[in-house]
């Protein structure tokens, strides 16, 4: 039985240098985007999804746990941030903190439940838990049901940055994305990350070496959920709304798709995947339900022939780790 990331992870020639160069290129590209005339809303949206997928990838790529319910963190943080900004009138930084704390609390609670099973059951449990939350949000008054929370004020971050100016908002979102990305990078290159990889490869062995594997998995889950919540809080400033689509299972599926296309278990894959999938949705927006069909086809093609994903294939070709 090959594990889900075995053929995604290239020869273990992990060099920090390659990753640094790739990171520098990515940052440089993203810094100059506003000068190139690309629609900034699109890039900001893609960045939020990129961070979300990176958080998801931390769990599957390095912990071997497939969550089919990551939309619950996106949606929960989104609703809490949106409510705090609009109803309580808090500052943007406080709004983000409230959203992230809510997602962190949710990940502790759901993590303690979901981590009790592994593999296929873990996927089904996370999916069921997020569906439970979907119905809760459908019925509680503060989310405004089908309408969602609309027209959220963007405010002035730290009293300095006016987020209603697109260019300022862009760099704030970019800074948030880079912060989240570096936290994940630090986590997987730490002793904690190494233990996580050991658990993914051979859990009984990790147990026999004395590691409390459940605690490591729970910690990875909480970190992943919290960062997904951070992406959800940032997304509120871009979209200026919070709605049920963000908690629906189709959103969880999209997160999986983004990571699969970019490359499961690769560092930069989820970022590339996010840009590919969000761009596809933009261009095909007029085709209605065919977008769903195309997403399904991409799933099938990726699983059958392209399991390494874009970055995974590139890394495999150059025998590098990216």
């Amino acid at each position: 039985m090959t594990t889900i990331t075995e053929n995604a992870i290239p020869a273990p020639r992990r060099t920090v240098k390659d990753e640094m160069v790739a990171f520098a290129i990515m940052t440089a590209l993203l810094l100059v985007v506003p000068l190139t005339g690309v629609y900034p809303f699109f890039v900001m949206q893609a960045l939020c999804f990129a961070l979300l997928a990176c958080a998801f990838n931390l769990l599957i790529g390095y912990g071997g746990l497939l969550s089919f319910g990551h939309a619950m963190f996106l949606g929960t943080a989104g609703y809490c941030t949106a409510h705090a900004l609009k109803v309580w009138g808090v500052t943007p930084e406080l709004g983000i903190v409230i959203g992230v704390v809510a997602a962190a609390a949710l990940s502790v609670v759901t993590g303690l439940i979901a981590i009790r099973r592994q593999g296929i059951y873990f996927a089904m449990i996370t999916l069921a838990l997020s569906q439970l939350l979907f119905f809760v949000y459908l019925q509680t008054p503060f989310t405004h049901g089908e309408d969602g929370i609309q027209g959220i004020p963007q405010g002035i971050l730290f009293g300095l940055f006016n987020l209603s100016k697109p260019i300022t908002l862009y760099y704030v979102i970019l800074a948030g994305f880079l912060l989240g990305f570096l936290i994940i990078y630090r986590a997987i290159n730490s002793p904690f990350g190494e233990v996580l990889k050991a658990i993914r490869e051979n859990e009984p062995r990790a147990v026999s070496l004395g590691y409390k594997t459940d605690q490591y998995k729970l910690l990875a889950y909480i970190l992943s959920g919290t960062l997904a919540g951070f992406a959800g809080a940032l997304k509120v400033f871009v979209a200026q709304n919070a709605s049920l689509t963000d908690v629906h299972w189709t959103m969880s599926g999209e997160i999986v798709l983004i990571t699969l296309v970019g490359g499961l278990g690769t560092l930069f894959g989820p970022v590339v995947g996010a840009f590919v999938i969000i761009a596809m949705q933009q261009y095909l927006a007029g085709f209605g339900q065919w977008v769903t069909v195309i997403q399904g086809v991409i799933f099938v093609v990726c699983v059958l022939t392209f399991r390494r994903g874009v970055i995974g294939e590139i890394a495999h070709y150059f025998k590098r780790s990216l």
Binding site: I4, A123, V256, V293
Partner: peptide, 23 residues
């Protein structure tokens, strides 16, 4: 392959089938 690939593949198939019927 890992069980999870089966889940992903059949999820894709579900999207295709449901999408076509919805169209």
């Amino acid at each position: 392959l890992d069980h999870l690939y089966g889940l992903l593949l059949t999820f894709g198939l579900a999207l295709i089938i449901q999408g076509v019927f919805q169209n």
